[in-house]
Design a protein around this nucleic acid. Structure first.
Length: 492
RNA sequence: GGCGCGUUCGUCUAGUGGUUUAGGACGCUGGCCUCUCACGCCGGUAACACGGGUUCGAAUCCCGUACGCGCUACCA
């Protein structure tokens, strides 16, 4: 691997779903890689056997591929530095842990969980500035260690943090961050079960996989000194670090499940477009610097830079996402919307209707400016899929006049003489009726809309009529003529 | 408690010492357009956490305070 091609990774732990915060981290990594001609790697951090979730990895990969953040290397896409599952790299971590022990930069610890617990409690009671492991096992004699090993006593491997200079992080987002060594604990590197902790695995893998830039959430900033100490102990070159601001709930706490949807699949299920989700999440912590906010993935690749990521956490606010969804939907290819609409219809009570592509396309065109989600084609204009069963009373009250019956009857007469009327035919004939009756077109338009759709809002009325077609329009008007006068009388 | 990070309109953000009476977007809102609704267009609303410095001049630099968040696990 070449030194000048950036290599970044998204390294989620498979907890069952992809968190929107994770989606943003993945996106920034992806954008950075694509912007700089680098590689985007997916690595699965499955080192916690207690948290194993069946099907989580498949779900994760499925969601990543749905949003379209295709990785260059990762599960099922070998790049010669795999495997990309940490659970399959145990022997590697062991080898490097042994090296560290050999060098004196790590040591075996045989302390029981109970001892650790009481140690912590004592330290807390003594009001020590910080609770840390007391290095008890660092001072075990070789004989004691050999004996413990022979007896197969469970043990872990700890990092040996020595006194020395402050550890300095030069973070792309945050600048220089400094830690004194006495606040760094002798971190566990290898657990009793032989699995590595995050700290060990991420450093070893990032190095072995040639990662040049570590782009991850801010929650990792505090443990970065441990990672730097590990790189130093191995004599490895440090990657560049970029710690991203957190995504927050409305009350500014870390975005969590309790306060709404956090899983990408939740948004997917609600009908959000991947384009909108990506666009929105990109804006949470980054801006292009100009006044643009509507971006395609390609736009973002072109404009992204880590230097323009800012430091404060961002609240996940749904209003802007909804707006972006509408924007992206309007820019979408109509045939793609048709496909999505058919999927929505298949899930709806109209699933048995046989509707032509031509018919649906007309609806898509007519409603495009009036919907934010594909499913709203059905929710907002059910009258394209079934005859009105009710008539909005406030509209009846406001728009149904004494002459409505007569005007509609005349319009029906006029329509029945037409053959395959175009949209324009519906319009000119309506205006003729208005002219003959010496009234404004609105006098007919509103009752017609009400009679054919049951409501007072919708697309242009001539679009509505043309889409429904002459026969259907006449049928609906005749039906309405029987019912609406009674409604009008009742609410008067 | 300790350590670290952060703090510009309700929300997302621009802003890196003078171009700023702090710009844009979402939301909310007034109007125009119009057959309705929407789109679009024009306008309005609303912010530099606080206190000290430094400087001729600070949202921008420094210090302190407050508040928020993160980490402090054989979780990631």
């Amino acid at each position: 691997m070449s030194n000048d091609t950036p290599r970044v990774r998204f390294a989620p732990s498979p907890t069952g779903y992809l968190h929107v915060g994770g989606l943003r981290t993945a996106l920034y990594n992806y954008l950075f890689a694509k912007r700089n001609g680098g590689k985007f790697i997916l690595r699965i951090e499955d080192t916690d056997r207690n948290r194993f979730v069946e099907g989580a990895v498949e779900n994760l990969i499925d969601t990543i591929s749905w949003v379209g953040l295709d990785y260059d290397e990762g599960p099922h896409k070998d790049g010669n530095v795999g495997p990309y599952f940490q659970s399959e790299r145990l022997d590697i971590y062991k080898k490097y842990a042994d090296q560290l022990i050999e060098q004196g930069d790590a040591y075996r610890c045989f302390c029981t969980p109970e001892r650790l617990k009481t140690l912590r409690e004592e330290q807390q009671k003594a009001k020590l500035p910080q609770a840390k492991y007391d290095k008890h096992c660092l001072y075990l004699s070789n004989e004691e260690i050999e004996k413990n090993l022979e007896e197969e006593k469970p043990h872990i491997v700890r990092l040996n943090v020595k006194t020395g200079d402050n550890v300095v992080i030069d973070d792309i987002v945050r600048g220089r961050v400094e830690f004194t060594r006495d606040v760094i604990d002798d971190q566990v590197l290898i657990k009793t079960d032989g699995f590595p902790t995050y700290h060990m695995a991420n450093v070893v893998d990032d190095h072995l996989m040639g990662i040049t830039h570590v782009i991850r959430g801010e929650e990792w900033l505090s443990s970065t000194p441990k990672h730097i100490l590990l790189y130093n102990a191995f004599g490895w070159e440090l990657p560049k670090f970029a710690h991203l601001p957190l995504l927050l709930n409305t009350d500014r706490s870390k975005l969590s499940k309790r306060q709404g949807d956090v899983a990408v699949e939740d948004y997917r299920a609600k009908g959000y477009l991947k384009e909108a989700l990506l666009n929105f999440v990109a804006l949470l912590g980054w801006s292009a610097g100009d006044n643009d906010e509507y971006f395609t993935l390609d736009d973002m690749i072109e404009k992204f830079s880590l230097e323009r990521v800012h430091k404060a956490g961002a609240i996940f606010n749904i209003d802007k996402l909804n707006w972006l969804n509408a924007e992206h939907l309007r820019k979408k290819d109509k045939t793609e919307i048709l496909k999505m609409l058919r999927e929505e219809l298949a899930k709806s009570k109209y699933k048995d209707l046989e509707l032509s592509d031509e018919y649906l396309m007309l609806i898509i065109e007519a409603m495009l400016e009036r919907v934010s989600f594909v499913k709203e084609y059905i929710e907002n204009s059910p009258y394209f899929f079934e005859r009105p069963t009710t008539y909005d009373e406030t509209v009846v009250k406001k728009r149904w006049k004494d002459d409505s019956v007569e005007l509609l009857q005349k319009y029906v007469e006029k329509l029945s003489m037409l053959e395959n009327p175009t949209k324009e035919d519906f319009e000119t004939s309506l205006k003729q009726v208005a002219e003959e009756a010496e009234c404004g077109a609105g006098r007919i338009i509103h009752p017609v809309r009400l009679a054919t759709s049951g409501v007072g809002i919708g697309p242009g009325v001539y679009d509505l009529l043309f889409i429904l077609g002459k026969d259907e329009v006449i049928t609906r008007i005749n039906e309405a003529l029987k019912v609406i006068p009674d409604i009008k009388a009742k609410i008067k």
